[in-house]
Design a protein around this nucleic acid. Structure first.
Lengths: 128, 128
DNA sequence: ATAGGTGCAAACAGTTTGCATGTAT
DNA sequence: ATACATGCAAACTGTTTGCACCTAT
């Protein structure tokens, strides 16, 4: 995606401004508030290009579409609610380096992610 | 899935005997060696029931179908190869307890999983 | 001017569901 | 005997692709 277009800028800004990871459908419908005839395929093409460039990152959770979020340098820990299935990117005091695993011979680690399951404020009843 | 059937037993055994997490399609084609007219939908129905009962657990990785593996009590750390996309369940000296996160107010953690990215023995060239 | 992007529709892959038939209890 | 499981096909959801038209460079 080498050329600068209205659509591309809009899709990028939509993800950047979001406060939580968004699905392609969410990105699309949000962006359509600006460009009402924006194609869903265009959204997918840009999201994919942004992910390839590591400008955004995809987060997956079983049975749900991939969500994308802005990469602002620091890794996020992700929290998925067992009840409502919403996905949150938590700013946590980071584990920073990979735990010193003894990987089996031949395996080379380049990164890692910690996913926490549980109940979000709305579902835990501890919403305060 | 309260009733004991040939299909149900076969699907369960197929996952239990596998050495790595399998996709529904893999489970189905493997199981078809025993019951050649096994329905794919039946496979999905049993896999889902097993997952609901926490007999098996689903593992996801972006852009790939969910894979299912036997739950043998201890949690596994999962390793996904950036090159060939194969998924491995590693037996590692377990982090055991959840790292003592300071979760934001209202969040309640019930579990967690660590996913490591990198290169598998076949792709790292360190296959020995 | 022209390579690359866009919108639309059709194609695909994975998964779920409806329904008539089969079978464990 | 009968409620539940099965197999098949059709339906659905999320994502990708083909293609004629449009637009940033």
């Amino acid at each position: 995606m080498a050329r600068r277009t209205r659509q591309g800028t809009l899709i990028l800004e939509t993800i950047r401004k979001a406060k939580r990871p968004l699905t392609p459908a969410e990105i699309h419908s949000t962006a359509m508030r600006e460009i009402s005839n924006l194609g869903l395929a265009t959204t997918y093409r840009h999201v994919k290009a942004l992910a390839d460039d590591s400008v955004v990152v995809g987060v997956d959770y079983p049975g749900q579409p991939t969500r994308y979020e802005w990469v602002d340098g620091q890794d996020k820990t992700h929290f998925t609610c067992r009840s409502c299935d919403k996905l949150f990117a938590l700013d946590l005091p980071q584990t920073d380096e990979l735990p010193e695993f003894d990987l089996p011979p031949g395996f080379v680690a380049t990164g890692g992610e910690f996913i926490v399951y549980g109940l979000c404020p709305d579902c835990s009843g501890q919403n305060k």
